[in-house]
Amino acid sequence: MIIVENLHKSFGEDHILKGISTSFEKGKTSLVIGQSGSGKTVFIKCLLGLITPEEGTIDFDGKIYSQLNSNEKRELRQEIGMVFQGSALFDSMTVEGNVMFPLNMFTQQSQSEKEDRVNFVLKRVNLVDAHHKYPAELSGGMQKRVAIARAIVMNPKYLFCDEPNSGLDPKTAILIDNLIQEITKEYDIITVINSHDMNSVMEIGEKIVFLQHGEKAWEGTKEDIFKTDNEAVTSFVYSSELFKKVRQMYLEERT
């Protein structure tokens, strides 16, 4: 379990995170949602230790991040997979090189074992014929999928994804969502996903944390999100006509 308590972060005068507390469980896909600029990326980077919060604790299964020394931090990080919002692929390496990179760095596997593993994860993200391309030669969606492959290649215990399916067509987006959920169940890992895509929320939102202006305005499951009266949530989630109708139908069905 990851337990976050009272997380504060400011950039200069801008108070971005204003005391966020929540928790993320094993074997569940947790979604952090909120408007653009609400602090989702800053939040996830605080969890990863890429941004140091001014206040608050982050507890990874009993390890308090801020109390670890730099070696312990690096050990913990080897159990973390991260998909950045902008993919962050190494542009001097091919797709294969990118995905194999963590294996090269941290395992003693033989070349053929590594290749097998890379082929396996690339297949899972539905990328089979791009092994020798460079990131600059891929479409945005393909880059995202390589980034996901790289994040899961080491079988992480914790998986963080910053908008893994933004910029993907609806079909691939759902495929990616389902893949992330499958992996979460299969390896019983803790998965935290930043998103503002309502399809993802409905598809895989086993726990949803709603951020607004740097505060946690609401949390619950995808079932709760239909029932809630919380105005901030409804105005965000049901801003599109389609979802307004879906909600109406859902509520009518229940009565």
């Binding site: 080897q78 950045f84 962050a88 963590p102």
Partner: peptide, 10 residues
């Protein structure tokens, strides 16, 4: 963010 990616991997 490639440097962040390196750091996150440990």
């Amino acid at each position: 963010e490639q440097i962040d990616a390196l750091e996150v991997m440990g």
